[in-house]
């Protein structure tokens, strides 16, 4: 079904991605019930290992694991031994000793989840909850799920769905995972950013690229705005937040260029007034809150598919 770990959106085949989305659909029904709890992962231990602050992603994974009855422990960098200089390896060995069946890792260094999965420090499954400027596969999955609900009635893949991703692509793990996953699912992706915020070699990515937001808005089925950090000014990526917002921000004038059915997405947290104006953020077509809700269900699906069967170490012989 899936591999042992979920590290990159690139690891998912079309069938695997659809399996996750279909499983999410079934699990979404649980969220609508009065008893929002399943016994599926009873006795499994899931560790949230967060080296970066991200309350919303941490809570989303925590809730997903709890709804599946897993035991969840959270290991945050702040106030823990990690902030006292303990290495990733020693932290991993500690978690292994505690019997973690899965480690959900958020880390500021690109590739840290891959390292955790392959260095031989732990046996459990590793879920990438965002690594550096590399990937954030569950965000891409929840975005794909949201897109499928709005453009495909919640069925099948995303063939021909036109998605515009706008902003700091260079530093965005959300953009990387989305480009990979959405292309796997058949969507038509266009990246929009100033040239300084596009990675070298982006012309060979499986998507289109534009420097001009107004040009691509009318044809979009969905516009995904990326968070832009004002600190990027220090790296001379753009002259001022005002200029950025004028050229690449989504405001009411630009929203009017969009087709009436097109939706506005944002991985959050939003910088209102920078990449997205308040009236757009609060518009009916902005599905930011729904994305959060879908995030819990997608993460339940991932946890079920990674932990819901016999592990490769052979629980099956019990």
């Amino acid at each position: 079904m899936l591999g042992k770990h979920l590290l990159s959106a690139a690891d998912l085949t079309r069938d695997q991605a659809l399996l996750i989305l279909d499983t999410t659909s079934e699990l979404a029904a649980v969220t609508d019930r009065s008893v929002k709890k399943l016994p599926t992962l009873r006795g499994r231990t899931v560790v949230n290992l967060f080296f970066e602050d991200s309350t919303r992603t941490r809570l989303s994974f925590e809730l997903a694991a709890k709804r599946l009855s897993a035991d969840v422990i959270t290991f945050s960098a702040k106030g823990s031994s990690v902030s006292k200089g303990e290495s990733l390896k020693d932290t991993a060995l500690t978690l292994e000793a505690m019997g973690a069946d899965a480690v959900i890792i958020r880390h500021g260094a690109s590739g840290a989840p891959e390292r955790l999965a392959t260095a031989g420090w732990i046996d459990g499954a590793v879920l990438n909850a965002g690594d550096g400027t590399h990937e954030h596969p569950t965000q891409a999955l929840l975005d794909a799920y949201t897109l499928r609900r709005h453009t495909r009635d919640g069925q099948g893949d995303l063939s021909g769905v036109r998605v515009v991703i706008v902003g700091d692509v260079l530093h965005s793990r959300v953009a990387r995972s989305n480009v990979l996953l959405l292309q796997t699912l058949g969507a038509d992706v266009t990246l929009v950013a100033p040239p300084t915020l596009l990675p070298v070699g982006v012309e060979n990515w499986p998507c289109k690229v534009s420097y001009h937001l107004d040009d691509v808005l009318p044809d979009a089925d969905a516009v995904m705005m990326l968070r832009v950090q004002a600190e990027r000014m220090a790296g001379a990526y753009f002259p001022s937040t005002l200029e950025y917002s004028r050229m690449y921000g989504l405001d009411a004038r630009r929203m009017a260029l969009m087709s009436p059915d097109a939706i506005v997405m944002h991985p959050g947290p939003m910088n209102r007034g920078l990449e997205i104006s308040a009236d757009v953020a609060d518009a009916d077509r902005a599905v930011v809150v729904e994305q959060v809700a879908n995030g819990v269900n997608v993460r339940m699906a991932c946890l079920y598919l990674l932990l819901g069967g016999a592990s490769s170490e052979g629980d099956g012989s019990q």
Partner: peptide, 21 residues
């Protein structure tokens, strides 16, 4: 009514796809 998520033998077999409820 799909009962996969309630089965007592989940850990004895490979993970199964959910059926519609």
């Amino acid at each position: 009514l799909d009962v996969t998520l309630y089965r007592d033998d989940l850990r004895l077999r490979q993970v199964r796809a959910l059926e519609p409820t």
